[in-house]
Nucleic acid binder design. Structure first.
Length: 559
RNA sequence: UACCCCGUGGUGUAAUCGGUAGCACAGCAGGUUUUGGUCCUGUUGGUUCCUGGUUCAAGUCCAGGCGGGGUAACCA
């Protein structure tokens, strides 16, 4: 739920307009809607649109509907209808009403007859190619269809015959009679109805006439009493048509307001391209944790609250911008830092042998679950003489600014003891097989009674108690921050070979009980999500949502 | 070559009736810290695309440029 305290009310061109409309008495109560077409899964771009429409309604004490824009049975499916509702709920929003464009088909049809009666629509016998060819181009006007001046009576008969199923697919269309020379191509007698003898997931076989987007969207908005119909920039050229239909019909006309869609570095939000990724097997489905789909982000472990906070923060404008991925990650980390329980996990282990530890002895140490949240409590973690630490946390010949373990150096094992490195074991090839150390028994818990300090604290796990589990390390799907503008349009060439790495991690034993859907911070590494899909009881699978900020690694890269 | 939209620090985004640029992230420098995380403090970046005009005063208004995006499915 998005019950977190609302940040200061945003100010943007849309809210400014709504405020003005309210003040002028133009609208009494704000009504918005989120109108997805159920022909695919929602992605992060939709999250922005959803957050906008739902938040605006909430802020101004209005309502927001969820409406399936199901006017084209060719691509739509009940599976998507269900998935979309599920995703919107996951984001934390609750619609005031759920509608289907298909439920308005009767009303929309009645309106079509009204337009025919007024001489503002006609039946065209031309096929799709002919219509396209006579539409003209961006710089030249179109030419009138030979059917353009049919009588009202003839058009009415034809339209009714179309509705009655007297014609085959594509044989006839109903067109609005506007202006074939209009500078806006959308106004050059746009098609309103096409014939498709096709089963619709909601209306079954009742219709063979299906309305086009322009001849449905505004009408649906009108029926629902939408006051502010918010959509993305590419619909700007459709607004004149949106207005024309409502005005010609003499029905209530909502106002359409367009805003820029969301773009984030390293992400793609084109349905077509995402489909290519899935169909080409470049990812493991729509819910692959590397996908920007809501289902993918969910499996990645991104908290919906973080997504919504991000969407609110980026605001809304008409400028076509691209956000740095770092901003998005900031919001993800920000929420996770406050809410994720801390655990220890070693992903690239190397043994640490404590030479002076009593043989066979095991001690429990008390660990804090979340330093950011005292209410998160504590847990006990087994400590023994044979531990595993991160390979990166040891260096045989460390540079001066390396604070971690090295021969002769003392560090703190988090929540455990101070240990001092005494040497290493190597195999025949000179490869380090284990790090050796001695511990200071007086430092249990991590503090030295004599007050001496260490420069670093490293995480660890007891070898004998560690849980062996699959951990999937995800990274940007593409090597370029702007995959959409790949050379020759071939974004597949920019697929990152390191976007997914699967390792066997050694985790602290308490993680054995992790349940799908839970989020953790593996101390000093990053935030991880217990996959709700592949995890089994006692055998969790973890997904790295995002790494922790790492100023050491950053400094290394710079050097 | 037509029409529509847009143009504020690295990236985004703000700035009541026009009164002289704020915030977040990123960057940099310190401090705190049993996560080289978090947190705290300080700080570097903007001739508000350009050129003219109106005005006591323009990021905000006007004109002309320049630059970017969008548009020619019986898709949405």
């Amino acid at each position: 739920m998005t019950t977190a305290p609302e940040p200061a009310p945003a100010s943007d061109f849309i809210r400014d307009r709504i405020r003005a409309d309210l003040q002028a008495g133009k609208v009494a109560q704000v009504v918005t809607r989120f109108p997805p077409e159920p022909n695919g899964y929602l992605h992060i771009g939709h999250a922005k649109a959803i957050t906008l429409s739902f938040s605006v309604a909430k802020e101004f004490g209005g309502r927001c509907n969820l409406r399936m824009d199901d006017t084209n049975p060719a691509a739509e499916d009940q599976e998507y209808v269900d998935a979309i509702q599920d995703d919107v709920r996951w984001l934390g929003f609750a619609w005031d009403a759920m509608y289907y464009a298909a439920d308005y088909f009767d009303q929309i049809y009645a309106w079509a007859e009204r337009l025919v009666e007024k001489g503002l629509a006609y039946v065209d016998d031309q096929n799709a190619d002919q219509i396209a060819a006579t539409r003209g181009t961006l710089t030249t006007p179109g030419t009138a269809s030979p059917c353009r001046n049919r009588s009202v009576a003839e058009n009415m008969d034809l339209l009714r015959a179309m509705k009655a199923g007297k014609f085959g697919d594509g044989e006839k269309v109903l067109r609005a009679k506007i202006d074939m020379a209009h500078s806006n191509l959308n106004m050059r007698d746009p098609v309103m109805y096409r014939i498709r003898h096709m089963h619709h997931q909601r209306t079954g076989d009742r219709w063979c006439l299906y309305p086009m987007y322009d001849w449905a969207h505004g009408q649906c908005d009108s029926i629902e009493g939408i006051t502010h119909s918010l959509c993305t920039l590419e619909f700007e050229h459709h607004r004149p048509l949106y207005d024309w239909f409502c005005d010609s019909l003499g029905i209530y006309k909502p106002q359409q307001i367009e805003f820029a869609r969301l773009n984030i570095e390293y992400m793609l939000t084109s349905k077509r391209k995402l489909l290519q990724l899935v169909d080409g097997g470049h990812v493991d489905g729509w819910d692959d944790p590397r996908m920007p789909t809501l289902r993918g982000l969910r499996r990645r472990g991104v908290p919906p609250e973080a997504l919504v906070a991000f969407c609110k923060h980026v605001g809304v404008a008409k400028f076509n911008s691209t956000h740095e991925i770092g901003l998005y990650e900031f919001f993800v980390r920000d929420w996770l830092n406050k809410n994720a329980l801390r655990r220890m996990a070693v992903l690239d282990p190397i043994p640490l042998v404590i030479e002076n530890w009593p043989a066979g002895h095991v001690e429990l140490v008390l660990a804090q679950n979340n330093p950011e949240d005292p209410n998160a409590g504590t847990r006990e973690v087994p400590f023994s003489g044979e531990l595993l630490i991160e390979r990166d946390d040891f260096m045989e010949n460390p540079p001066k600014d390396f604070f971690r373990l090295a021969p002769g150096r003392e560090v703190r094992l988090r929540f455990g003891f101070f240990v001092k490195c005494t040497g290493v074991d190597k195999d025949a090839d000179g490869r380090i097989t284990a790090v050796r150390a001695t511990y200071d028994p007086t430092t249990k818990g991590g503090n030295a009674p004599d007050g001496r300090k260490v420069k670093a604290t490293i995480h660890w796990v007891s070898k004998a108690h560690a849980l062996d589990a699959e951990v999937r390390l995800f990274d940007h799907l593409f090597t370029s921050p702007d995959p959409a503008s790949a050379d020759g349009g071939d974004f597949l060439k920019l697929l990152s070979p390191t976007s997914k790495k699967v390792v066997r991690g050694k985790l602290e034993p308490s993680l054995k009980d992790a349940r799908g859907g839970e989020r953790f911070q593996f101390e000093r590494i990053g935030y991880f999500y217990c996959d709700h899909k592949d995890s089994q009881s006692g055998a969790p699978v973890f997904h790295r949502t995002v790494g922790l900020k790492d100023s050491w690694q950053k400094a290394q890269k710079k050097a």
